Amino acid sequence: MSSIRAIAAGFSLIAVARSMSTAAGSSEGPGLCLGGTAGTRSGSPPRLLRLTDVPGYEAHRVNDVLLLRPAGAESPCGSDTEAAEDGSEHVVFFPGDIQNFQQEMVLQPEGAQYQGWSLERVALILGRRFPGRHVWVVRASCMYLHKFSCYHNFVESNMFGAPEHSADYGALRHLRALLSHGMERAGLLPPGGASSSPFPPPGFSLALVGFSKGCVVLNQMVYELAGARADPLLGPFVGSVTDMFWLDGGHPGGSETWVTDRRALRELAASGAALHAHVTPYEVRDPMRAWVGREHRRFVRTLQELGARLSNTLHFEDEPPSIDNHFRVIQTF
């Protein structure tokens, strides 16, 4: 988890918020590009487009998403009449607890302290980390008590977001449908393109990034890989994933913070994707949750034994564990 344990541990939220606001940049950012507003022009700054209730796999699975277009994108925001812009490289980010849209975080006493890590500000950070790519930030389908992110649409979870993983929940099917409909609504695919043409389109590539609680989505996808790679619809989509980033994974359950099942990890290693584990002492050196560090070490060791393309980085190793550094891994990975 991200913020909740810090509150219990007595961290000063005000001090944390100040330091995070400084680290994340000033409060001035690009305006939200909503339906009916002017589009971007070549050479203009990136624009943020918020899409609500984007349908995914099955009628009841919908998510709000935020799209950051790369600098120089020419297609108007929300246009369904213009030609799709040329952009085949995409990044999808799954945030952690308490992270929400800026306008909603400022209304909550605890959320307001963390608005330096709102979805909009994180999208801008990722835009600098992945220049030239379209960045998608997927809001959790439920925020219990405005704090606990629950990714019910991607993985079976309790109200606090602790997952129960399985091999056939449909996380990959949901993400595929979510992106195809989101791209159509954003003008990245022509009208009807999501339903009338194969998805992903030619040249499409995808990097998946999970932070803190958001890593449960990546973990669920790992469990689904065996079936997905054999599926004629999902196979090409899974094959488009070039990179997967785990950023300081954590959740309130007592196990499965990191995937340790060797069969699932064998499928992950065989996928050929570049795998990246980025952690901080906040998660992997917490004596009250020693299993997190043990699972992380087993995740890394098993993938290395299986010959995976894996990088493993411990950030802020010589600094005391802190919620501040937990969030800062979003900037430093």
Rank of each mutant, 00 (worst) to 15 (best):
Ala17Lys: 11
Pro287Val: 04
Gly116Leu: 08
His251Asn: 11
Glu28His: 15
Leu145Met: 12
Thr81Gln: 10
Ala59Gly: 06
Gln113Arg: 08
Pro202Phe: 08
Ser3Asn: 14
Gly235Lys: 09
Ala230Ser: 13
Tyr282Met: 01
Glu283Gln: 15
Ala23Gln: 13
Phe93Trp: 04
Arg176Ala: 08
Glu120Asp: 07
Pro190Leu: 07
Tyr151Ser: 00
Leu303Asp: 07
Val209Asp: 00
Gly210Lys: 06
Pro202Asp: 07
Val209Ile: 15
Leu188Tyr: 11
Cys33Val: 09
Asp53Arg: 15
Leu48Phe: 08
Phe299Cys: 11
Asn325Val: 03
Ser118Phe: 03
Gly96Pro: 01
Leu34Glu: 14
Leu124Tyr: 01
Asp64Gln: 05
Val292Trp: 02
Phe245Asn: 10
Asn158Leu: 02
Ala38Glu: 14
Gly43Ser: 09
Leu306Cys: 03
Leu303Thr: 05
Glu58Val: 14
Pro76Cys: 00
Gly254Lys: 08
Leu247His: 09
Asp64Glu: 11
Pro45Gly: 10
Asp64Cys: 07
Ala277Ser: 14
Phe204Val: 02
Glu184Phe: 06
Thr81Asp: 07
Val135Asn: 02
Val138Ser: 00
Pro232Asn: 05
Ile14Met: 10
Arg133Trp: 04
Val241His: 10
Met143Gln: 07
Val217Ile: 10
Ile323Ser: 14
Pro202Arg: 12
Leu34Gln: 14
Tyr223Cys: 10
Ser79Val: 04
Val138Pro: 02
Val122Cys: 02
Thr260Asn: 07
Gly35Glu: 15
Gly56Ser: 14
Gln331Met: 13
Met105Ala: 01
Asn63Lys: 06
Glu74Thr: 14
Glu104Pro: 05
Ala140Leu: 01
Tyr114His: 14
Ala177Cys: 13
Ser2Gln: 02
Arg297Thr: 06
Arg229Ala: 11
Ala6Phe: 09
Gly253Val: 12
Tyr282Ser: 00
His146Val: 00
Ser2Pro: 03
Glu317Met: 06
Asp231Leu: 04
Ala264Ser: 10
Ala71Gly: 09
Val135Arg: 05
Ala270Met: 11
